[in-house]
Each structure stands twice: as C-alpha cells, then as structure tokens.
C-alpha cells in the first residue's frame, strides 16, 4: 500500500538482484597477542553458491567472526583472497552488508533514520525513493509503527529487526550475519528464525551466518560448517536438507543438531588430549 505511487527507481531499487557467489581461497590470518601469535584462520577455502545460506559454527575464538570480517572487507587476510562473483574483495562495500551481534544501530538517529543511512549513500535515488524503500523494509520486519522510535526505546528483538532492515535496505547481494541473535531471549529468537527464513526466501540473498548455537545453525543453514580453533580450520561440513520453513523445535532438526554438537565436542576432546600430552 505504500507503493501506490511507485516511481521507476523505487521499483528498480526493490527489484530482486542476483545474489552473489562467494569463493574463499586459502585465506590465512594471524593475530599477535601478548602470549604470542595466534593463527586465527589457517588456509580456509570455501565456496558459497548464489542464494545459499551457510552457517559457520564453532567455539568462541575459532576465527569464524574473523572470516566474516574478511569477507566483508573490514579486515585483510595475511594470505589468500576472497572473490565475490569472481572479483577480489579488498574493501567494504554495500554489496556485502554486515549485521553485527551487538546493536550497531546509531543512537543519534531514529529507527527510520538508521534504515535510511545506507540508502542515503546510494546515488541515483531521490529522497522520496529512499524513504519509500526504507519504509518497505521496516514493514518487512514488522516495525512500521516504530519508524520514529529512538533506538533505546526498542526491545532487543526490535533492535535486531531494525538492524536487519538496515542491512537489507541498500539491496546487497550478500548478507553477513555475526551472531545477530546471540543476545536475545529464546522466544524472540524463535520468532526471528521464522522471519529471517521468510525474508531470505522472498529477497534471495546469499547469507553467511556466524553462530555458536548449533541448533540455530541447523535451523537456518543449507549447510553448516564446523570450525575448529587453534588454528582456525573448517573441520567438518553438514548439509541440512530439511524442508523449509523449519521449526527450531522440529525433531529431525534436533537430531541434526545433536550430530553437529557431537562433532563439536569430539574435537574439543582431541584438543584437550593434545594439550594434555
């Protein structure tokens, strides 16, 4: 109903654009800490298909967030490279937007202002178009009534909805999500799983989703990649071929999750054993 007076550029702006294909080739990254050099990522190679939903799972400190930052272009790998549709990623860009764990919403702007932020940096749009696009995404995440709300007035779940709308608004080809639901309560999270799956189906994005919640990964991902820490490596890969939309409480899903959990624990033990030796 907002689009009664659709202008050409709004239609174009909201049109589905082809999602990206990602290729991560031999990416390594190490950090210097007070206790020496830590190899956060050790020759990671991975390809993500167009419109695929990939979840990276692992204990904290296994380098999965670092990989996400490298894909985003926020950090540079020591060696190796990331290709998005065949082009090397060197800087951040609005083709690949990130949704962060903690609220990275700007407190000096209201909800609508936050969603507009990325749109204002997009050329070739009139302000009227930007407003229409921003409102479309606020509606998509169910927050039309809260467009004038200050950020601190929103609940944790609503904040992450605004963050999702903000990340979607510039119509990126890739959505990078860094534990976006980790700080939310279980009920809110469940709701967002449903919404995210629906949005992913309707907006067709390539999504790389980092989490330490195995059940969450099994619920959302087409594939779950298990990371092992020190050095960060992809240990195992679990395709999840359950029908969508998936319910987090589904029995089959729980079975997949427990298999992944088992693998996660087993190399935790081998590592402990290795340290003990």
């Amino acid at each position: 109903m907002i689009f009664r007076h659709k202008t050409g550029s709004v239609t174009e702006e909201l049109a589905l654009i082809p999602p990206s294909k990602l290729a991560i080739e031999n990416v390594s990254k190490s950090f210097r800490t007070s206790s020496g050099t830590v190899l956060a990522l050790d020759r990671i190679s991975l390809s993500v298909a167009e419109a695929e939903f990939v979840c990276l799972v692992g204990a904290s400190g296994c380098g999965k967030s670092t990989l996400l930052n490298i894909i985003a272009g926020l950090e540079k790998p020591d060696s190796g490279r990331v290709l998005a549709d065949g082009k090397p990623v060197t800087t951040p860009g609005r083709e690949r937007l990130v949704m962060f764990q903690e609220s990275a919403l700007f407190p000096w702007l209201d909800a609508l202002g936050n969603v507009l932020f990325g749109l204002k940096l997009k050329p070739n749009l009139t302000n009227r178009d930007r407003l229409d696009v921003a409102r479309y995404y606020l509606e998509l995440v169910g927050l039309t009534r809260f467009e004038r709300a200050n950020i601190h007035e929103l609940s944790g779940g609503m904040k992450q909805r605004v963050a999702l709308a903000r990340a979607l608004a510039p119509n990126p080809r890739v959505l990078l999500m860094d534990e976006p639901f980790a700080a939310l309560d279980a009920l809110t999270r469940e709701q967002l799983y449903g919404d995210l799956q629906q949005i992913w189906t309707s907006r067709r994005k390539t999504i790389v989703f980092v989490t330490h919640n195995v059940r969450e990964a099994a619920c959302l991902g087409d594939r779950v990649l298990l990371f092992s820490p020190h050095p960060g490596r992809i240990q195992e890969e679990f395709p999840i071929d359950l029908p969508r939309p998936r319910d987090i409480n589904n029995v089959d899903l729980a079975a997949r999750a427990s298999r992944i959990m088992h693998a996660l624990k087993s190399f935790g033990q081998t590592e402990a054993a290795a340290v003990a030796k």
């Binding site: 985003a72 272009g73 926020l74 951040p92 860009g93 609005r94 690949r96 937007l97 990130v98 962060f100 903690e102 990275a104 700007f106 932020f117 990325g118 940096l121 997009k122 903000r166 510039p170």
Partner: peptide
C-alpha cells in the same frame, strides 16, 4: 568502533 565498521560496510 562498531559504529565505524557498520558505516564502512554501508559505504561511508
């Protein structure tokens, strides 16, 4: 720093 990072990804 997260504000800067978020803004960077949006092209600021």
């Amino acid at each position: 720093p997260i504000y800067r990072r978020a803004a960077l990804t949006m092209g600021s």
